[in-house]
C-alpha cells in the first residue's frame, strides 16, 4: 500500500510537471501567467490552512508574512547598483545596500524572516483565542503595512521597489507548491498534526491529554509563516514591482475565501480552492468588461468580481459551511476505493 502510494505520488507529480512543460512550450504568455499565479496561491492557501483550518485559529495576518518575505527576497536579488538608484529619498541602510544573493537563497531568507517575525508575535497572539486572536493578527498585518510605508531606509517607503528580476516561472512556483504541500501533509499526519487537530476540537481536553497548545500553535504558525514568506518572494519576482499597498487585508480576504470554499482543514480542499480562485478571477473578468451581444451591449461593471467573491464567501459559510471538501482529503486510497470517498465528508 505504502509503496503503491509512493509510486502514484511520483507518477502524479511527474504528470503535473509534464503538463507544465507542455504549457511552457506551447501555452500563451497569458496561460503561463495564470499558472504561475495558481502555483503561488496553492502554496499560500496550503500554508494558511495549516493555522486556520487545522489548528482552528482564525489568523488574519498572512499578508504580514507575505510582505516580509517579498521585501526580504526583493532586497536580496536587486543588485547594489539598482538599489542605489531606487532609494532616491533615503539611502538604504547598511548591510542591505551591499548584500546580493541568488534567487533561491533570497526565497529562503524571506521565509526565515517571516518565520522569525511569526515567532516574535506568537507570544502576544497566542495569549488570546477566537475573535481576539483574529483582531490581534489583523493588527499585526496593519502594523507591518504601516512600517513598510514609514521605514524608508529599508523599504523605500510608499515608492516601493521597482524593476525586480522576473525570476518566478512555472518551475519555481509549482515546485514550491508541491514541496509545501508534501511537507505540510507530512506535518499534519504526524503526532504534531494530530495534536493540532485536538487543539482545534477542544483545547481543554487536549491540555488534559498532555498537549501543550502554545508549543504546537507556535510550530504551525512558524511553518505557515515560512511558506507564506517564500510565496511573498515568489510574488515579488512575478509582479516585479512591490509597494506597501500590494499586500493588504484584501489578500488575506482572498486566502480566507479560498480555504473556506475548499473546506476549512482540508489540504486538498485548499488546493482545489486556490485553483478555482485563480481560474475564477480570470474567468470572471467577463463581468467587468463590456459584453457585446450584437444588437445590444451590457456594460461591464468594474469591481463586480469582488462583490461576487464576497457573496460566494457569505453563501458558502451560511449554507454550505463545509465547502467543497469538508475536512476530507483526496488521497490515493480514497480514489482507489471509488468516488464514495467524496461523499464521506464528516460534519464538524
Amino acid at each position: 500500500m505504502k509503496n503503491r502510494n509512493l509510486i502514484l505520488n511520483i507518477l502524479g507529480i511527474s504528470a503535473l510537471f509534464g503538463v507544465l512543460r507542455l504549457f511552457e512550450a506551447y501555452g500563451s504568455e497569458y496561460q503561463v501567467r495564470i499558472l504561475d499565479n495558481m502555483g503561488v496561491f496553492i502554496t499560500l492557501a496550503v500554508s494558511y490552512n495549516l493555522v486556520v483550518g487545522v489548528c482552528g485559529q482564525l489568523h488574519l495576518g498572512p499578508n504580514a508574512f507575505i510582505t516580509i518575505g517579498a521585501y526580504t527576497s526583493a532586497l536580496l536579488t536587486m543588485s547594489p547598483a539598482e538599489k542605489q538608484m531606487s532609494f532616491i529619498i533615503t539611502p538604504l541602510v547598511w548591510p542591505l545596500n551591499v548584500l546580493h544573493a541568488p534567487f533561491a537563497l533570497s526565497l529562503v531568507a524571506g521565509g526565515v524572516m517571516a518565520a522569525l517575525f511569526a515567532f516574535l508575535i506568537s507570544f502576544p497572539v497566542f495569549r488570546v483565542r477566537g475573535d481576539y486572536l483574529a483582531i490581534v493578527t489583523l493588527g499585526f498585518g496593519e502594523v507591518v503595512r504601516v512600517l513598510a510605508n514609514a521605514l524608508q531606509s529599508v523599504t523605500n517607503g510608499p515608492l516601493g521597489l521597482k524593476g525586480l528580476p522576473p525570476r518566478t516561472n512555472l518551475w519555481w512556483s509549482w515546485g514550491i507548491a508541491v514541496l509545501t504541500t508534501l511537507l505540510v501533509v507530512k506535518l499534519i499526519n504526524s503526532s504534531y498534526g494530530r495534536a493540532m487537530k485536538a487543539i482545534r476540537e477542544d483545547e481543554t481536553a487536549a491540555k488534559a491529554m498532555g498537549i501543550d497548545p502554545f508549543r504546537h500553535l507556535v510550530l504551525a504558525f512558524m511553518v505557515s509563516a515560512f511558506f507564506s514568506g517564500v510565496s511573498g518572494g515568489l510574488l515579488a519576482h512575478l509582479i516585479t514591482t512591490i509597494s506597501p499597498t500590494l499586500f493588504t487585508f484584501f489578500l488575506t480576504f482572498n486566502l480566507l475565501m479560498i480555504i473556506v470554499v475548499g473546506g476549512l482543514g482540508s489540504t486538498t480542499g485548499a488546493i482545489v480552492g486556490a485553483v478555482l480562485f485563480t481560474w475564477g478571477s480570470e474567468a470572471l473578468r467577463v463581468v467587468e468588461s463590456d459584453m457585446n451581444f450584437g444588437l445590444f451591449t451590457i456594460p461591464g461593471i468594474p469591481g463586480m468580481r469582488m462583490v461576487l467573491f464576497s457573496l460566494i464567501l457569505l453563501l458558502v459559510i451560511i449554507f454550505a459551511r463545509h465547502g467543497v471538501m469538508g475536512r476530507g482529503e483526496i488521497t490515493w486510497n480514497r480514489i482507489a476505493s471509488g468516488w464514495g470517498a467524496l461523499a464521506g465528508r464528516k460534519s464538524a
Binding site: 477566537g130 480566507l256 464576497s310 464567501l313 457569505l314 459559510i317
Partner: peptide
C-alpha cells in the same frame, strides 16, 4: 464561532 466571524468579514467586504 469561527463561521460567524468569517460571515462577518464576508458581510463587511460585501
Amino acid at each position: 464561532r469561527i463561521s460567524l466571524l468569517i460571515s462577518a468579514i464576508g458581510a463587511s467586504f460585501l
